[in-house]
Nucleic acid binder design. Structure first.
Lengths: 255, 255
DNA sequence: TTTCATTGCGTAATTTGGACACAAAGTTCG
DNA sequence: CGAACTTTGTGTCCAAATTACGCAATGAAA
């Protein structure tokens, strides 16, 4: 995928599964804030979700993994599809024609990039500090944005982002979250802040700890986080085996 | 969509969004059994999920609605997409070529029907007794099957069915279910049987009633179901307003 | 050394959930 | 026609989970 932009826009017809794309909502967590990785599109200066096309013989999940890897430099990312956005009007013909013009790609009305596109939305959870944001061929910037400060995005990407957050909140209710967003070692307050940020509400410190510990997926280490201007909190890490088990079995369920 | 089969298979290239289909897992409930609506494919005598293609300027959800309407005769069906199946190997080239041959459709290697297909899975909840199963152009039978007795299906349709059931169980944990599967008036034991069937396990009669009533989405009527060989149970119906509200807000959630 | 914010640990009150008892209702059987 | 049988309506008891706090301990900063 290191072809020049023109190659891709010209050869897309032959390379990609037609009328289909993937878009990734990449979540990170830093300084008690939930972040999203966004791209600034060339020429049009609009921010957008990282996305891409699916190669003719490529698994859809692999395509999303490829996008993720190339935007963050990370492998083994937690990734989950959450919704297909398939309204006919979501990809704007005129907008894309304008873009081709600005990119000086020769085209006519039947150009593959101008046809209707559906997009499959994925959300990904990554460890903020180990990711290395990298723009792609269509963008000249790749940066983390605070969830609260995300600007108006290209096409229906704001809607996709909203739906991703909704899916993430739903996951929180029946599966553990954190292994993919936090460093290997973390404190209980850090984990709590993560939950509070995703849920958008405050939780009681003591009850949070108790509930989290009953899930039996955490290991308390003998270390503490030092250098803080108060009592040093213990460090924890996830028990990998039990964490994976909880991911599969679910945490509770209601019935 | 009342063209002859040949028309569709020959004109597909022009009519449909390329390389993309929808498949519907249509659930019904009858005689305390969860049922699925299946089609018997012509010529090959294999059962399959009802599905179809998406018209070039059609919303994906509308395409699924169209499939549902034409298989059951029903409008206003509860319908929800749950997963995109996008492995390259899922649509078998040789299998489809064989099918074209049997249908006596003239084709070469570039025929649209032979390309790779992704499919978006939907599940639907319908009231068994008001649905009228109807085969489509590709099938010579359309019947309800007990979930436990579903045979080996075409392509990856068994996998799609499994995933649909999983999605349905998940929905049960955070949203009410029943309005779409039961008649307007129903008894508490009937509702309970529905839940038990979906979950695949027995529930305590008295605790079930208490929990269900606390959701505050049911209205008890002054009528009873008569003609049964025991005490006549009360009839209930869903309070439409509160039911919709519960659908949107979720029932509990864990956090 | 005192102050201050925060952590670790704990307790009481309340709510929810699971297991079960019993009387009432309606058909069926003797 | 009444006894037997099955199932429903309602309620209780107890354990587990959830919520709302209290308080001493810790470690940097004042």
């Amino acid at each position: 995928m290191d072809k020049a932009k023109e190659d891709i826009l010209e050869l897309g017809q032959e390379l990609f599964h037609p009328g289909f794309s993937v878009d990734c909502v990449i979540f990170g967590f830093h300084e008690n804030q939930l972040k999203v990785l966004l791209l600034k599109m060339k020429h049009i200066d609009i921010w957008a979700l990282p996305g891409g096309f699916v190669l003719k013989e490529e698994d859809v999940e692999d395509a999303a993994t490829r996008v993720l890897q190339s935007r963050t430099g990370l492998d083994n990312i937690f990734l989950r599809q959450f919704h297909l956005f398939g309204q006919p009007g979501r990809s704007k013909h005129d907008f894309n024609a304008e873009l081709l013009k600005k990119r000086q790609v020769p085209f006519d009305g039947s150009h593959w990039f101008l046809q209707r596109f559906m997009t499959l939305g994925f959300y990904a959870l990554v460890e903020y500090s180990s990711a290395t944001p990298r723009p792609d061929n269509n963008s000249d910037a790749c940066e983390w944005w605070d969830l609260q400060q995300v600007p108006a995005l290209m096409q229906d990407h704001n809607q996709i982002l909203d739906k991703a957050l909704e899916a993430l909140r739903l996951q929180l209710a029946y599966q553990p979250i954190g292994y993919n967003l936090l460093a290997e070692k973390f404190t209980m307050p850090e984990l709590q802040k993560l939950y509070e940020t995703i849920l958008g509400k405050q939780l009681d410190r003591r009850n949070f700890q108790r509930k989290m510990l009953t899930y039996d997926i955490l290991e308390r280490l003998d270390e503490r986080r030092s250098g803080v201007a108060h009592k040093a909190p213990y460090l924890y890490r996830f028990n990998q085996e039990k964490y994976q088990q909880a991911l599969q079995q679910g945490l509770q369920g209601g019935w």
